[in-house]
């Protein structure tokens, strides 16, 4: 009896899970699903660009510090935030 109940519960859970996954997969293939994915991709690309610019500004500051000519911070665009040079 316990074995049958366990199999019933397992089958029900598998059915619910597979149904959920199948519905989500079908939704991804629809036009609104594709639009949502495109929006998410654009957001990800924007965040990736922001992270990349941050890393580039860090590297620029390191190069400028290696030159020992400038010790000011760099902004997001890679330019110097203040124009004070040594």
């Amino acid at each position: 009896m316990n074995g049958r109940l366990a199999w019933f519960v397992a089958g029900t859970a598998a059915g619910v899970y597979s149904t959920l996954k199948a519905r989500r997969a079908v939704y991804r293939m629809t036009p609104p699903g594709m639009a949502d994915q495109a929006n998410a991709l654009v957001s990800g690309a924007r965040e990736f660009g922001a992270q990349m610019r941050a890393g580039m500004s860090v590297r620029q500051a390191e190069v400028a510090a290696d030159l020992e000519l400038f010790d000011g911070p760099l902004d997001q665009t890679g330019d110097y935030t203040d124009k004070e040079y040594r």
């Binding site: 949502d36 998410a40 957001s43 965040e47 992270q51 941050a54 890393g55």
Partner: peptide, 23 residues
Amino acid sequence: HGLAHALRPESRDRIRALMRREY
């Protein structure tokens, strides 16, 4: 350096989570 900074695990996970949340 910018690419490496953007592709490090912390940034990668953050970007993935952001995309999943947006979707």
